[in-house]
């Protein structure tokens, strides 16, 4: 299933291009993600990873190219159908992006409450069950997000992302800012959730340990272009000079840090 030449990928991106002013952030990206697999996109800060996710989510409008989900070009869908597609995508934001005016359980049950799909009492119970899935005690539900540690906020963010049982999940640097052990725990939860839901996942990260743990396949983004794609297990011995320099964190190599733009 993880062969990119599979006929019907869940997500098919072709020629995706986006520039902010004179700076080209994405430069003709072609990427396929097969259904039920996890793709990890690695790359340095400012290489366009977040912009790629935001383009797929429709938060940023690309300048050119196409993004197909289940064979339908979402960039050209009418707004209402586009919202239906988005409703099947869950996302874990880098800093959690939890709603600080709501309690933890209201965050987790937000999608249910906002669409009036469940009464508050029922939504609360379901939030408790979802919190348990990410290893949190349901009593955490009554706290406000600001009272939680970073690792717990990530768990709540994950709970909120999976609450609607989406068939596509996005993870924006899921382990950034966590200690290595908590990072491994979160990675484990991510793998569990993706497996249980049977979701297709895209994670962006620059944490190599995390990339090999959660990814089936991996791709490297550099200056807006995909410079390498392959199995995530090959990341540390890919034979590609850029990937090698990045994964081993070497100062010297084909990638030179830009100090000005």
């Amino acid at each position: 299933m993880s062969d990119p030449s599979t006929n019907d990928p869940k997500i098919r991106i072709r020629g995706l291009t986006k520039a902010f002013g004179t700076k080209t952030v994405l430069d003709g990206i072609d990427l396929d993600v097969a259904a039920g697999t996890s793709m990890v996109v690695i790359g340095g800060s400012g290489s366009g990873k977040s912009v790629l996710l935001k383009c797929i989510l429709g938060l940023i409008e690309p300048d050119a190219g196409s993004i197909e989900i289940d064979g339908r070009d979402v960039l050209r869908l009418p707004r209402q159908e586009r919202e239906q597609v988005n409703a099947r995508i869950g996302m874990l934001f880098q800093a959690g992006a939890l709603f600080d005016s709501l309690t933890v359980w209201e965050n987790v049950a937000f999608g249910l409450l906002a669409q009036h799909k469940a009464a508050r009492a029922e939504a609360r119970q379901r939030a408790g069950a979802i919190l348990a899935q990410v290893g949190l005690d349901p009593s955490v539900g009554d706290l406000s997000p600001a009272e939680l540690s970073g690792g717990m906020q990530k768990r709540v963010g994950l709970a909120r992302a999976i609450a609607a049982q989406p068939d596509i999940l996005f993870f924006d640097e899921p382990t950034t800012g966590l200690d290595p052990i908590m990072g491994a725990v979160i990675d484990g939860l991510i793998v569990d959730c993706v497996k249980r839901l049977g979701s297709t996942a895209i994670a962006i990260t620059h944490d190599m340990a995390s990339a090999t743990r959660i990814g089936d396949r991996a791709a490297m983004l550099f200056r807006g272009k995909l410079v390498w794609q392959g199995p995530a297990a090959d990341l540390l011995h890919s034979g590609n000079e850029m990937v090698d320099q990045f994964t081993h964190g070497r100062r010297d190599g084909p990638i030179q840090m830009e100090l000005r733009r």
Partner: peptide
């Protein structure tokens, strides 16, 4: 201040991923 903080901490983007139109909400 409230909406601005929600914007810079991605909370407004998060609304969009939870089937909620931020303009409407």
């Amino acid at each position: 201040a409230e909406l601005g903080t929600m914007r810079v901490t991605d909370q407004i983007d998060a609304l969009g991923t939870l089937s909620t139109n931020p303009m409407k909400y």
